[in-house]
Design a binder for these strands. Structure first.
Lengths: 351, 351
DNA sequence: TTGTAGGCGTTATCAG
DNA sequence: CTGATAACGCCTACAA
């Protein structure tokens, strides 16, 4: 019995107070402290109280890292996104946080800048930290290297982006519906030439929206013209460039559907520079409904996305997967999109 | 010697492969694996290679949680901010991330929504996870309860907010300079009545800016009028309300200095609603220079803050504190502010 | 240069 | 109901 060195350890706490100290203070066994504090129902109330008092007095705080090691659960979720600075990211993040908070989980947030290499690095950072699950809000979700990392067994959800080649749990939005409503709105205003600024390549969402655009044009028997589809990048600059290219066309669209609000803002910048008025000279529709879209100098008609709700839904799904260790069949949840008509759309100019 | 149960453990890895497995695969001792992988220079190169190969083959990834427990270092930083969704937050976050990444640290990000209660909860979440350090980008930094948590010994930096009652390591901006330049600019344009939308209470930065505003007016011998100082909250809504109150004044300012760009946007919304033109009817200056400020429909004259640089500087300071365990004297780093003249300022209207 | 033997702070499993 | 004791996976003296 005298072999353990535990005894002399009892006195020396180098800064942090541990469960040992609480046990000693409360005059109970170490395991009792753990049981009492973690709310085991078989602990006598008086004991629990005694323990709690001791803990309080000593300023004891559990070490989540020790607990994580033991429980093989870190109570931490990893979030991978292209760019926090994109105005739509924080809303998703908030939704994720809503659930994480209520599940006592922390959030490890990483940016990938849309670069595969960075994404891999960040995924490793997350996995090495043994996060309980991953929320992927980033591109490259069908790259082999990414998939390899995903095979690791850590539960994950795709949010807003997905891999068409894999059956993953996914939360997205009904792009058909959103784009459809936008085109219907424009058609109703008499627009016959509708342009599209595409989202980045390697984005499933951008693909879906493109398809929905084509479908929408067909549905309203509008002209489909490859010149009216310009590649964007979800950023202002891309929208600006696309806008300039549109304006340079001889037969140019009377309405532009932008990949997202930031692209639409880019178009606004370009229009301003070119002396074109919106919606007098052409109509413009964004997508996302970021806060800024509603500011009166911008006043952008756009297709709203329920980002916070989507983030929360994805995280709920993730938590479910984490809880029931076994991976049942992947779930999908598609949120509605809603057209918000503001001041950037108006009747088509008579030709 | 036959008492240890280590041996039968060697075969059973329930999912994750551990350093044990690598040791066995490589035919070396467990500690050698650790040494080899963590780059100890006394490991023979051939051994290191052998180990690396084995690790690769088995798909071994270090468990940062186990390492954290052992090393008493989690390689994780906690970031506390009022709101990720505020457009200026992500830029700070990026700066923080720049350094964290290069230091192999992860970032645990929490929102407080400016609520003391939430801030305390989040701080506990962070501290329980034994983050190596804290970046505080949130209010309430002089509340006793917050200070108590800070006493815990975890290194921390104040970014953009600080406690005037405590000597903390702090990274901020030169508010005098920024506000001074703005007022000089307005005075130069002939403005004699300059209003201010104040930042939230309990914010040191808002206080500093208010002081700078008063100093600026004095320096240019301009009228100081309490009616021209309206409380805002750094949000659009607060700016909108303030704007309306300004417009309702009988003798109203010909120029408004907003607490931040979001407040300024709020004023723009209010002006639009009231049929007032900027800068024809009054001039407006924001503060932050968020990306949006440069978009042509907004085109806001503003005072730029080097957010990303500030975030990075704060984090560098923090890392330094973490490394040299001892807490030397707190450092301060003040960044310049720069007036960016755009289209929201113009000559004062003749009275 | 490599191997051995703790122990970091918890929780879980069993005996009492 | 409470109390020993063994892991969890890793790092680090110290010994060989």
């Amino acid at each position: 019995m005298a072999k353990k060195a535990t005894q002399n350890k009892l006195t020396s706490h180098n800064g942090k107070v541990s469960i040992h100290d609480v046990a000693r203070e409360a005059g109970v066994a170490l395991s009792t402290v753990s049981n009492a504090l973690s709310g085991k129902d078989y602990v006598r109330e008086t004991t629990r109280l005694k323990v709690r008092e001791a803990a309080e007095k000593l300023g004891y705080r559990v070490s989540v890292v020790a607990r994580s090691l033991r429980m093989k659960r870190t109570f931490t979720l990893g979030v991978l996104l292209a760019d926090v600075a994109n105005p739509s990211s924080p809303d998703f993040l908030r939704g994720i946080e809503d659930i994480a908070d209520q599940e006592q989980c922390g959030l490890l947030v990483c940016n990938t800048d849309g670069q595969l290499e960075k994404q891999l690095t960040q995924m490793r950072v997350l996995l090495d930290r043994r996060v309980d699950g991953l929320v992927l809000l980033s591109q490259h979700c069908q790259q082999p290297a990414v998939r390899a990392l995903l095979e690791d067994g850590t539960p994950f959800v795709m949010l807003q982006r997905r891999s068409l080649q894999h059956e993953d749990t996914y939360v997205g939005a009904n792009n058909d519906e959103g784009i459809g409503a936008a085109i219907k709105h424009l058609a109703g205003l008499g627009h016959k030439r509708i342009g599209l600024i595409r989202g980045p390549r390697d984005s499933s969402t951008a693909d879906e929206r493109y398809d929905a655009y084509i479908e929408g044009l067909k549905a309203h028997r509008l002209e489909i013209n490859p010149q009216w589809v310009i590649q964007g990048d979800y950023h202002v600059k891309g929208g600006y460039d696309a806008g300039k290219r549109f304006f340079a066309l001889d037969r140019r669209p009377t309405a532009i559907l932008a990949a997202n609000d930031m692209s639409a803002i880019g178009v606004m910048n370009a229009a301003h520079e070119a002396g074109l008025k919106i919606p007098a000279d052409f109509s413009l529709i964004g997508l996302d409904d970021i806060e800024m879209a509603s500011f009166s100098p911008i006043n952008l008609t756009t297709i709203a996305l329920q980002r916070r709700e989507m983030g929360a839904a994805a995280t709920s799904l993730l938590m479910k997967m984490i809880r029931q260790k076994s991976t049942p069949k992947p779930k999908k949840k598609i949120f509605p999109m809603k057209l918000i008509v503001r001041g950037s759309t108006g009747p088509a100019k008579a030709d």
